[in-house]
């Protein structure tokens, strides 16, 4: 098993933090080999940004995400920046209000619309959309069960534990379906 996961959006959305939580869940809570990297502009907020995780059950010889097979798009910038790099048969979770245009994706990329930001608003803080996304990703891929991802959230994102717990649970409960008009 080897997977390249990219969590992308704009600076300030907690993308790097989310990738660190995901790496912790896969590498420490579970027992995979994991490398986490990131890209960000020098400003603290704003600007295209992403957090990457390479996960494998054997030694990772190349630490960077070359072509993600799983993309969480939390803003349109993510689609604009990374959409064209998606290989056939790969999966995208796209925020249904922050992302508006999917035309950059190839026809054979499976896109799931997900109310990540809206769910975060319901939980009580838009800033935990990244944690909602981790719940949704875990449920969709089956890489992590709710207890495993929750454990990593608690240890790597200890601020506001109650909000984060509800965010990851709400994300895990989302029933994602592939966008219509695209190959399943």
């Amino acid at each position: 098993m080897k997977s390249e996961i990219r969590i992308a959006g704009i600076g300030g959305q907690g993308l790097v933090s989310a990738s660190v939580v995901l790496a912790e869940a896969l590498g420490v809570v579970r027992d995979f080999q994991v490398v986490q990297t990131q890209f960000y502009a020098s400003n603290i907020t704003g600007g295209a940004s992403c957090g990457d995780v390479v996960v494998a059950d054997e030694n990772i010889t190349f630490p960077w995400v070359l072509e993600p097979d799983l993309l969480i798009a939390l803003a349109q910038d993510a689609v604009d920046g990374h959409g064209a790099k998606m290989r056939p048969g790969t999966t995208v979770i796209a925020d249904d209000i922050m992302v508006t245009n999917l035309s950059l994706f190839g026809e054979d990329v499976t896109v799931h619309w997900a109310p990540l930001t809206r769910t975060a608003d319901e939980v009580g803080s838009r800033r935990c959309a990244n944690i909602v996304a981790l719940g949704a990703l875990s449920q969709l891929t089956g890489l992590l069960d709710l207890a495993q991802v929750s454990k990593a959230v608690a240890s790597r994102a200890p601020g506001k534990p109650e909000t984060n717990r509800r965010a990851v649970e709400a994300g895990y409960a989302l029933q994602l379906t592939p966008a219509e008009g695209r190959a399943a």
Partner: peptide, 9 residues
């Protein structure tokens, strides 16, 4: 920087 800002298990 590519190494300093990387995390691994």
């Amino acid at each position: 920087g590519l190494l300093g800002l990387q995390r691994a298990v």
